[in-house]
C-alpha cells in the first residue's frame, strides 16, 4: 500500500503511561505518513502527545510508558517488530533527533567532535581519522566558524545557537532518512532562531532529509513545512497542507491557536481571544470530543460521541462534528462570530 515516495507510515499508534493512579493515554490512535524529502510539523501545546509520538518512532518510551498498539513502518521495515539490537542501528543512523535544550542534551565532559564521531564509528564503521574528518565537515556544513579548531572544544565553550548547530551536525552526520526536531528553537533567541530555521531549510534541500518538526509555535512552521498535524490531548484533531490550516482551518481548537497569539504584522490592536479553560487531564479525558469542555460551539453530539477525522478535501482532514452537513447552522454562526 505504500508508494515509492513514502518514507514513514504510522497507523493507529497508541502509547500509554501506566502510572500508579491509572493509564495515561499520551498518544491515542494517531495515524499519519510522511514522504521522502518532505517536512511536516506536529503542532500542539505541552502534554498533547507530540513528543511522545516522536519518541515512539524511535522506540524510546521510558517505563512505565509503553507502545500499546499500532504500526510504524519506515522505508518498508516494521519498526515495532524489530529487536532492540536492530533498533539501535535505526537510531542515529536512519532516524535521528534534535532536542529542545542543547545544553542538557550534549555530554558536558566530551568534546563536540567526539560526540559527532560516536555515531559515525558505531553505525558506519568509520575509522577514527575518517570520522574526525567528517565531524569537521559537518560543523562546517552547519556554519560553525573555525570548525577544525572548534571540533576539539567542549559544549560549554559554545554559545546556545552554536550548541544547537552542533546538535544538528551530530544528528545529520550519518545522513539519516528522517530527522525528528523537537522544539529545536524554543530555548533560543529570535535572531538565533532565524539562523537555525534558515539552516534547516538549507539542509533539507541539500541532503533531502525528511523532517518532522515538533513545535508549539505556528510561526516557525509556516516557513519550513508543507503539511501540519494539530494535536490535542493525544489525538490528531486537524491535518492538512499548510495553506489549508492557516487560511481555512476547520477545527475550533486550531482557530483558537491562531487567534490567541498576536501577529507582528497586525495593523491594529485587537483583543486576543484566549482558549478558555485548560487542557484535559489525560487520566480521565472528557467523553465525546476531547475539546468540547473548552469549545465555544459544542453541540449535543460533541459531548457524547467522538468525531473521527472527516475528509475536508485535498488532504485536509478534521475531527470535528461542525464539518458535518447537519451542523451547517452552528458552523455558520461560528464563522459569523469571526471563528
Amino acid at each position: 500500500m505504500h508508494t515509492d515516495d513514502r518514507l514513514l507510515a504510522i497507523e493507529d499508534l497508541k502509547t500509554s503511561f501506566f502510572t500508579y493512579v491509572g493509564e495515561v493515554k499520551a498518544v491515542d490512535g494517531v495515524s499519519f505518513d510522511l514522504d521522502k524529502a518532505e517536512a511536516i510539523a506536529i503542532v500542539g501545546e505541552s502534554g498533547c502527545g507530540k513528543t511522545v509520538t516522536a519518541m515512539s518512532i524511535l522506540r524510546l518510551i521510558p517505563p512505565p510508558g509503553r507502545i500499546v498498539r499500532g504500526r510504524i513502518t519506515l522505508d518498508g521495515q516494521d519498526l515495532l517488530a524489530k529487536s532492540e539490537r536492530d533498533m539501535q542501528q535505526v537510531r542515529g543512523n536512519d532516524v535521528s533527533m534534535i532536542f529542545q535544550d542543547p545544553m542538557t542534551s550534549l555530554n558536558p565532559v566530551l568534546t563536540i567532535g567526539l560526540q559527532i564521531m560516536e555515531p559515525l564509528i558505531l553505525h558506519q564503521g568509520m575509522s577514527k581519522e575518517a570520522a574526525r574528518q567528517r565531524a569537521v565537515e559537518m560543523l562546517e556544513l552547519v556554519g560553525i566558524p573555525h570548525a577544525a579548531r572548534r571540533v576539539n572544544q567542549y559544549p560549554h565553550q559554545f554559545s546556545g545557537g552554536m550548541r544547537q548547530r552542533a546538535m544538528i551536525a551530530m544528528a545529520l552526520a550519518c545522513n539519516p532518512k528522517l530527522l525528528l526536531a523537537d522544539e529545536p528553537t524554543t530555548s533560543l533567541d529570535v535572531t538565533i532562531q532565524a539562523q537555525i530555521i534558515e539552516l534547516m531549510k538549507d539542509l533539507k534541500q541539500k541532503l533531502s532529509t525528511s523532517i518532522i518538526l515538533i513545535t508549539h509555535d505556528l510561526g516557525i512552521v509556516a516557513g519550513l513545512c508543507s503539511r501540519v498535524l494539530v494535536m490535542y490531548a493525544g489525538k490528531i484533531i486537524e491535518t492538512g497542507p499548510i495553506k489549508a490550516i492557516y487560511h481555512d482551518a476547520r477545527h475550533p481548537y486550531t482557530w483558537g491557536l491562531l487567534k490567541s497569539v498576536p501577529r507582528l504584522d497586525a495593523l491594529e490592536k485587537r483583543r486576543l481571544v484566549p482558549i478558555l479553560g485548560q487542557p484535559p487531564d489525560l487520566l480521565r479525558p472528557p467523553a465525546g470530543c476531547r475539546f468540547h469542555p473548552r469549545c465555544g460551539h459544542a453541540m449535543h453530539i460533541c459531548l457524547e460521541e467522538e468525531p473521527e477525522l472527516f475528509e475536508a478535501g485535498d488532504g485536509h482532514r478534521v475531527a470535528c462534528w461542525l464539518t458535518q452537513p447537519q451542523a451547517a447552522g452552528v458552523l455558520k454562526e461560528a464563522m459569523a462570530g469571526g471563528r
Binding site: A194, G219, A222, G223, I242, K243, Y246, V261, R263
Partner: peptide, 9 residues
C-alpha cells in the same frame, strides 16, 4: 527574524 503564522506572507 520573527516568524509570522501565515505561509503566504
Amino acid at each position: 527574524a520573527i516568524p509570522i503564522p501565515d505561509p503566504i506572507v
